[in-house]
């Protein structure tokens, strides 16, 4: 490499270390068919999922069966009560969030759905939230309902007894799908192939 030196006129000039360049791009985002119907349901205070062939119900629906990769069309309403499958207590003020600390963010398996949604738990001290706790949706006032999942302000305990047997998906297979028992690797045959119907228990 040749020796490089600054021209005399630039010597002693403070180097530019960084520049701040704000950039703004505006997008018109498309929700998609499945999400649109879900959000219209929310406007009517209903929680609409989609049933995929084989029976699983996904909320919110995304228009595709993630196991088969096929478009889904059958809509079903699920309950507004469910079970906490796991949670975390948040103590850090997070960008864009105006929640009072600490608050609880939980995975909630709504009755009739097969995959948990993530939402807030309130109306109970954060340190009393439990896996298995039964909770129900608390909606905004009617005039504030908008086509967004945030129209459900949070979930709160129903007071029912805990569902102590609650499992997360995959946990039903021994102690988890991707665990090695006796040093033997799990195989694809451990799970049901949704296209061929083979595999699984």
């Amino acid at each position: 490499m040749p020796e490089i030196s600054l021209p005399e006129s630039l010597q002693g000039v403070e180097a530019v270390r960084s520049v701040r360049i704000p950039a703004r791009l505006d997008y018109e985002f498309t929700a998609g068919n499945a999400s649109s119907r879900f959000l219209r349901g929310i406007q009517q205070k209903k929680i609409i999922g989609q049933r995929v062939p084989g029976g699983r119900v996904y909320v919110p629906p995304r228009g595709a069966d993630p196991e088969r990769g096929q478009a889904t069309t059958e809509e079903v309403e699920v309950a507004q009560v469910g079970t906490v499958t796991s949670f975390c207590m948040v103590n850090v003020a997070f960008y864009g969030s105006s929640m009072e600390l600490p608050y609880t963010s939980a995975l909630i398996l709504l009755d009739g759905a097969d995959l948990s949604i993530m939402h807030l738990i309130q109306e109970i001290p954060a340190n009393e939230v439990r896996i298995g706790m039964r909770v129900e949706a608390v909606w905004r006032d009617d005039e504030d309902i908008e086509p967004t999942l945030e129209s459900i302000k949070w979930f709160r305990p129903t007071g029912e007894p805990d569902d102590t047997n609650v499992r997360i998906p995959g946990e039903d297979h021994g102690t988890g799908l991707g665990s090695w028992v006796g040093g033997v690797a799990p195989t694809e045959a451990l799970v049901r192939n949704p296209r061929t119907g083979k595999g699984g228990h």
Binding site: L25, Y27, F29, R62, A64, D65, P66, E67, R68, G69, Q70, E188, V191, N193, P194, R195, G199
Partner: peptide, 20 residues
């Protein structure tokens, strides 16, 4: 293009990546 991070992660839903 669509202004969404990790867009390819959600489009994997269209493939049928199960089993992995």
């Amino acid at each position: 293009l669509a202004g969404v991070g990790f867009s390819f992660v959600s489009t994997l839903d269209g493939v049928g990546a199960w089993p992995p």
